[in-house]
Each structure stands twice: as C-alpha cells, then as structure tokens.
C-alpha cells in the first residue's frame, strides 16, 4: 500500500507522526554515534577531556568556597560535596549549550534534506551521556576513596537522571528554536550558563536556602529542576544525606512544563526553520 502525503501550509502544531519518528530512530542513533566518535578526534588526551572540566572546577571550588569562604557542605568533605554536583551540572551545561546551538550548527543539513528536525536538538542530549558516564565513573572512584557507601537510596539515581534529561531536553527545544530565529540566544547562553550554575546548589547546599528563606522559599527554589537533581545526586550517593523528595517533586513539575512547552514551541516554529536559517 502506497501512502499518500499532503504537503501544504500548516497553522499551529502538526500532530506527532510516530511512524515517521520510528523510521528515523536509526538516524538518531547514527547522529549520536557521530557526535561521540568525532568529539575527541585528533586530540592527545581523548576522552580524558570529559573529566578535566569537572575535576578542575572541583579543585577551584574546594579552595575558594571550601577553604577560603568556608561555605558549609552539610558535613560532607567539600571535594566530594562539589564533585557530586559537578557531574550532573557539567552534563547539564554542556548539553544545554550544544542543544541550544544545534540548529544553527546543522543548518546546512536541514536546509538540504528532510528529516524530523526534533532529532537535531535531541542528539546532544544522548551523545553527552558518554561524557557523563565517564565522569560518573570517576565519581564512583571518589566515593570509594572517601569510603562513602551509598544507601539503598542509590536506586533513585535513574529517576534523577531522567529528571535531568527531561529538563535539558525542554530547555534545548526552546533555545534551539529561538536561536535559529534570533541569534542573540547564542550569545546569551554563554553568559547565562555560569549564572545558572551559581543559582544551582553546586557550591553551596540547598539547606542554606531553607535556613534563610524558610520552607516556602525552599519549595519555590525547587522549581529550578537542577536544584532537585543536584541535591538528589548527593542524597542518592552520600550516606550522610537523604534525597530531598520535595525539591525533586517541585523540579519535576517545572521539568514537565519546560519539556511540553519546548516541544510545542519547536513543533510550531519548525516549519519555517529552513526559510530563515
């Protein structure tokens, strides 16, 4: 049975074509594979670069915030405290950057050939998981070094990773669709990323927010999904800390909103990407 396609001008959001997405799942696979294969080509250190960024940041933070500013780390050794946060944070910031600029980067591709455009911002979301995996392995070595045995809470880790991925995907959809229309976004991403890091509980614990702004302020803070993700990582991996499910719950709400609205905006605007790229 030959299928008939009608191409015409659409207003609003096209319904999701599941059959088409299924047909192109192999393309997603090869694009992810391409990203992972190519990223450290012609480098000497190769995949070691994946851990340079979080480790250097950890050393600096330990010195500046742990030793000099003496920020509390809830009784956890500061290097471990910050590295637990830096592993998800590095994934988040790298992926946000790559996904946000992905449409601009591959404009020569989608103006030449048709495939579901949503695959473009989705690719870095998967390919950056390779870097994440490597730095996570280093984190495990850290835990062993500090003789920190995770409790049963470690089972919540996959869930926290899903929250992290859904958040960054939602942001990626929004930013990539906006950046292809308004290149300002590309410049904004570079300066907003560090601001977002200091807003997240990377160098300080979220208990400081609780102390200063009370429980309502703390819940409001939880709407920033990375707060729940980062404190969740600490809770899942470190025996001293429980997982703050209230933060994770609040973060999940905004992650779902970000994802759904980002998906919608992307789908609504993708029809003219090729005309304005």
């Amino acid at each position: 049975m030959v299928q008939e396609t009608v191409i015409k001008s659409y207003k609003g959001v096209k319904p999701i074509n599941w059959k088409e997405l299924k047909q192109y799942k192999d393309l997603l696979y090869f694009m992810v594979l391409r990203d992972i294969t190519v990223i450290y080509k012609q480098t000497i250190m190769g995949f070691a670069w994946a851990i340079v960024n979080p480790i250097v940041s950890m050393v600096i933070f330990t010195f500046v915030f742990g030793k000099l500013a003496r920020i509390t780390s809830d009784g956890i050794p500061y290097p471990l405290f910050s590295f637990c946060a830096l592993v998800p944070w590095t994934y988040f910031s790298n992926t946000m950057n790559a996904s946000g600029t992905s449409l601009i980067q591959s404009s020569n591709l989608f103006t030449k050939v048709y495939f579901p455009r949503i695959l473009i911002p989705l690719t870095p979301i998967f390919s950056k998981l390779a870097d994440f995996g490597i730095s996570f392995a280093i984190l495990i070595l850290f835990l062993i070094g500090y003789k920190a045995t995770p409790t049963v809470e470690i089972l919540a880790l996959p869930l926290l990773m899903v929250l992290m991925i859904v958040t960054v995907a939602g942001i990626g959809f929004w930013l990539s669709a906006l950046a292809i229309q308004y290149r300002d976004v590309k410049f904004a991403i570079t300066f907003v990323t560090p601001l977002m890091m200091y807003a997240a509980p990377v160098v300080f614990p979220s208990s400081m927010i609780l102390e200063k702004y009370g429980y309502h302020g703390y819940l409001l803070y939880g709407l920033y999904p990375m707060a729940g993700v980062i404190e969740g990582f600490r809770g899942a991996l470190l025996p001293q800390k429980p997982i703050p499910w209230d933060l994770v719950g609040m973060g999940s709400i905004s992650a779902v909103v970000l994802f759904a609205s980002g998906w919608r905006y992307f789908r609504r605007t993708e029809r003219f990407f090729a005309d304005i790229a």
Binding site: Q3, E4, T5, V6, I7, K8, V113, Y114, A274
Partner: peptide
C-alpha cells in the same frame, strides 16, 4: 524544497504518493 518537505508552501498543496528521496 517543497517537494522534499524541507519547507512548506505558503499557499496551495501538493499530494505525493509514496516515499520521496531528494
């Protein structure tokens, strides 16, 4: 570009039977 679904037409429509590769 319209035939290969890269861009949509502003007006009018086009019906295609089968898979298109451009």
């Amino acid at each position: 570009k319209i035939l290969s679904k890269i861009t949509d037409p502003t007006l009018g429509e086009i019906r295609i039977k089968g898979r298109v590769a451009a």
